[in-house]
Simulated scan of single mutants.
Amino acid sequence: MRRSVALAYVLWFFLGYLGIHRMYCGRVVSGVAMLTLTILGGVTFPILIGHLLMFIVGVWWLVDLFLTAGMAQESRR
């Protein structure tokens, strides 16, 4: 299935913390992991553990800035 790099980046920008861009590119397991970390981070944010989880997701989101184009192009094959 053909994946649009532009759409992958739109999803990364608006829904990146939820891992939707990874699921779109065919990386469902890592997308669900990102979604799970975001949900757990949001729930545990008041007890400070969530801060660490959200930091991890934030770093992962920034790293995906450089990986998303490759993931979308790879899924085209």
Rank of each mutant, 00 (worst) to 15 (best):
M1A: 14
M1I: 05
R3F: 10
R3T: 11
R3C: 02
A6H: 00
L7W: 08
L7K: 04
L7G: 01
A8D: 08
A8F: 06
V10D: 00
V10A: 13
L11S: 04
W12T: 00
F14Y: 02
G16D: 07
G16C: 02
Y17Q: 06
Y17T: 02
Y17L: 13
R22I: 01
M23N: 12
Y24R: 00
Y24T: 01
C25L: 07
R27E: 11
V28P: 03
G31V: 07
G31E: 06
M34Y: 12
L35I: 00
T36M: 10
G41N: 07
G41Y: 05
G41A: 07
V43K: 07
V43S: 08
F45H: 15
F45Y: 14
P46C: 09
I47F: 15
L48C: 11
I49Y: 03
G50E: 09
H51N: 00
H51T: 00
L52M: 11
L52N: 09
F55D: 07
I56N: 07
G58I: 11
G58F: 04
G58D: 01
L62K: 06
V63R: 14
F66P: 11
A69H: 10
G70A: 12
M71Q: 12
M71A: 14
A72Y: 04
Q73T: 10
Q73F: 04
R76W: 06
R76H: 05
R76P: 10
